[in-house]
């Protein structure tokens, strides 16, 4: 599903370049459940952005579902995000003016899907996240947990291959946090590739495979060595 090879990302900040990623090799199988952890500044956000096609690597190759994305033009990258990737963010990122259903319809609006079909698909998505009764509510009328569930419905409504969750529980109390985690884990069980970026070991530890970053390198990967394609030898810590 996902193949990263020699991914580097260098930011030009002032005089000295900052190397956020220094050669990451990673391969994630379809339907996998992966957590990416590491301290701030370890490069996990940068990796998430590259995985989500929001950012392009300075060097290296990223193949998503067999397609090389590193050299795609911006408009094409937008289309890859639209169809292949769903995002969930710590701060939900719902449009405050739109209702829950309106927010869920938004990706389909950009995809040019007709209103009739959008409504039907949004309705089904709301059903999946258990918020059918909240369809007409605006974000400020929803609790944090409900907002995140609307965001999840929005992320999966285009039926992407990969769900990228950036600190999905970071802004939630433990009850709604575990609700959200259970919801996305259920989607993973149904075949969605799930990648969670977090610094919460409670959340990250639930993944089938845990990847730990430090200083722009993968320093730990619990994937069985037989499946690993990483060229850089990562020290095994157990």
């Amino acid at each position: 599903m996902i193949q990263l090879q020699g991914i580097e990302r260098v930011y030009e900040v002032g005089a000295s370049p900052v190397r956020a990623l220094r050669g990451v090799n990673l391969s994630i199988a379809r339907g996998d459940y992966v957590s990416i952890m590491g301290p701030s500044g370890s490069g996990k956000s940068t990796l998430l952005h590259i995985l989500g096609c929001l950012d392009r690597p300075t060097a290296g190759s990223y193949r998503l579902a067999g397609q090389e994305t590193a050299d795609l033009p911006e408009a094409e990258l937008s289309r890859v995000r639209r169809h292949q990737i769903g995002f969930i963010f710590q701060f939900f990122h719902l449009i405050p003016r739109l209702t829950a259903a309106g927010n869920i319809e938004l990706p389909m609006v950009f995809a040019g899907i007709p209103a009739e079909e959008r409504r039907e698909r949004a309705r089904r998505s709301l059903e999946v996240v258990g918020l059918t009764a909240r369809a007409g509510h605006r974000p400020d009328q929803l609790s944090g947990g409900e907002q995140q569930r609307v965001a999840i419905a929005r992320a999966v409504v285009m039926e992407p291959a990969v769900l990228l969750a950036d600190e999905p529980t970071g802004n939630l109390d433990s009850v709604s946090g575990s609700e959200v985690v259970r919801l996305i884990e259920r989607m993973n069980t149904d075949g969605l590739t799930l990648i969670v970026v977090t610094h919460d070991p409670q959340v990250g530890g639930r993944a089938r495979r845990c990847i730990r970053l430090a200083d722009g390198l993968v320093v730990e990967d619990t994937e069985p060595p037989s499946r690993r394609r990483s060229a850089a030898p990562a020290p095994e810590v157990t």
Binding site: G52, L54, E74, A75, S78, H93, I95, F110
Partner: peptide, 16 residues
């Protein structure tokens, strides 16, 4: 700005 970022993340092209 953050709303524009969100729209880009869920698949809006710069032209859109």
């Amino acid at each position: 700005t953050s709303e524009i970022g969100l729209m880009r993340a869920i698949g809006a092209t710069p032209a859109q």
